[in-house]
Write a protein that binds this DNA or RNA. Sequence first.
DNA 1: TCCCATTAGTTGCATTCGCAACCAATGATC
DNA 2: GATCATTGGTTGCGAATGCAACTAATGGGA
Lengths: 145, 145
Amino acid sequence: MLQDFFPYRLAVTSAAFSRLLVDVYQRRFGLGRDEWRLLYLLANVEAETSLDLGRNTSLDKVQVSRAADRLLRKGLIERRTPELDRRLWLYSCTPKGRAMFNEVHTLVDQRSEAVLQRMTREDRTALERGLTALRQATESVAAGL
Amino acid sequence: MLQDFFPYRLAVTSAAFSRLLVDVYQRRFGLGRDEWRLLYLLANVEAETSLDLGRNTSLDKVQVSRAADRLLRKGLIERRTPELDRRLWLYSCTPKGRAMFNEVHTLVDQRSEAVLQRMTREDRTALERGLTALRQATESVAAGL
DNA sequence: TCCCATTAGTTGCATTCGCAACCAATGATC
DNA sequence: GATCATTGGTTGCGAATGCAACTAATGGGA
């Protein structure tokens, strides 16, 4: 039975939860998932290179490049070439970007909390624990190819 | 910090886990995610209408239509018009489809179990519990729009 | 019986995605 | 310090996705 298959339940649950948040940052603010992630990172830091940006968002270089391009065109971030390595970009958030981040973050966090608060404290603890363990186990298997 | 944001961790973990399985059914068998879901359902049942197929796979009608189309062209499933309602299709799995399902399922299940077996029994129980609670909470919030 | 609102499925289009090829800068080696 | 493998970023292209329009079948009233 597909409905009992763990990978299916994980994917469906994760997608359903995600959809609630996408409704906020995508439909209401026109931000894609990747843009939202970059903005999240840059809003909370002075500046960061494209390289670190990729590492810290689980996005590959193509995704970073394209999402950053969209954010640039919207005036939410800016970039300059760092002196040390001219292959990279050093990105930072504009005031406009920070303002939008704060607005979006408030609403996204509300939605997310609305879901989590419908769970018991014990269920939340269990989810937290299970998720952390799953991430480690997944990384471990993926590392061994 | 993005890395501590629950929605981010859920999405990243789920995607990483998923990728391990996609490597199997996509790269090695040329099946898309939607095709794999339909095949999973149809391999374990006599026949099912397009309508039920959608309900039981969390796919919308467009996804069902297109994935079914691909499976038909590959000869893995077949369909006929049910007498009761000629708007629908009644799908069923061909022997070739069942054979491929069994092969893929074995490998996918191995991968999935390889991950889960690296977790302690307690972590697995916690994950199971947390995931079920999260799904219910998510559905509950989504239902209230 | 004839509308017509509803439901199911398909198709078109614009956007996004993933992959591979490509270009630019770096740095190790000779 | 010239060569070239490596690393970082961008671009192109084919496939997939999401959304809305469209077609076909159903079913409930005037």
